[in-house]
Amino acid sequence: AAKRAPLVEEEELEGPAIESGELEGDEDAPDLPATAASELSPLVTVAPEEASLKVGERTRIVASLPGCVGYNVTDLRSSNSDIVKVDGDVQLLAVKPGTATITGKLLLEKGEKAFMTQITAYEPKLEAPNLPAHLGIDEALKLEAYVVGEADGVTPEWSVSDEKIAVIEDGKLIGKADGVVTVTAVHGEMKSQWPVAVGTAELPAAEDEEENEDDDDGFGLLTIIGGVIIIGGAAFFFLRRKRK
């Protein structure tokens, strides 16, 4: 490593960055385990150019090695191709939001090493992390928003569906009366909405929850009917046996 990287002084290296057995392809040399950080040695790393990738965009797997050591990346695989799929020899394509683990091999001049890394795919959208599902009357809440995939927060245009129930003043949402209001945020072409219950009002149950309740009621009714049939059948069998 010192010969191929003139900028690294020999006395600073307490030991070889990559054991000679690894580069020479020695069968007895132990394989380094693949890690989420993609580190093969203190001087060799393998990672995507972009760890967070917007849906529809591509990135490449690249390696950082000392000096001018040549390498190739091969055998790329994704743990979930529905989220991130392999698109070429070293390219990856984000398909839908989520996180996928990427594995592959780093081919050196006379050896190879397995590696593992992660890529997170996302869709840019407005989020309001501190917006509650319920707000008290006369309670004031400072509105905050950010765009998924961006480091800094944003200041969108806020509005409410009914100012008799809640209003927005000086960047704060203030409850005024009992009821449910829809809070809307618009930033560029992005738009997001959230329902908020004010005062004694409650948010309506989600459709999935209502369906689950209906299923539970139906299951309970079937259980009762089944129990009655079983008990009735047992009683009939007992009386018939008693007559005999």
Rank of each mutant, 00 (worst) to 15 (best):
V46G: 01
L43C: 07
V86M: 02
L131F: 01
K96C: 11
S38Y: 02
G153C: 12
L93Q: 02
H187P: 00
I165Q: 00
P48W: 00
G188M: 06
T223F: 08
V69N: 02
G227H: 04
G233M: 13
L106N: 00
S81E: 08
A133F: 07
N80H: 04
E19R: 05
L92Q: 01
G227L: 14
K96H: 08
E207C: 09
E202N: 07
A17M: 07
T223R: 02
T35V: 14
M116L: 14
V198I: 15
A128H: 01
K96G: 09
A177S: 15
E123H: 05
F219R: 11
G232M: 15
V84M: 06
V186M: 09
R58Y: 04
V95C: 01
T223H: 04
G98P: 01
G67K: 05
K244Q: 15
K244P: 03
Y71W: 12
I230Y: 03
L53V: 01
P195C: 06
L23F: 12
F236L: 15
T155H: 09
A5G: 03
E169W: 05
G56M: 12
T223V: 04
T101N: 03
F238P: 06
S161M: 11
P204W: 11
R241N: 09
A140Y: 13
P66V: 07
P195G: 00
L203G: 07
L222Y: 11
G175W: 05
G226L: 12
E127N: 08
K96Q: 15
P124N: 10
E19D: 11
V8T: 14
I18A: 02
E49I: 14
R243C: 05
D152N: 10
V148C: 06
S78L: 00
I231F: 14
L7V: 13
T101G: 02
G153R: 15
E10H: 09
G188N: 01
F219V: 07
L108Y: 04
F236E: 14
L107K: 07
I168S: 05
K113S: 05
E14K: 01
F238E: 13
S161C: 10
K85Q: 10
T155S: 15
A151R: 14
I137K: 07
G232A: 15
P48Q: 03
C68V: 12
T182E: 11
T35F: 03
E112T: 12
A114W: 03
G70Q: 10
D152R: 11
G56L: 13
I165N: 01
M116D: 06
P204D: 11
E157G: 11
Y71E: 07
A63C: 09
A128E: 06
P129N: 13
S159W: 06
L107T: 13
K172D: 13
N72Q: 15
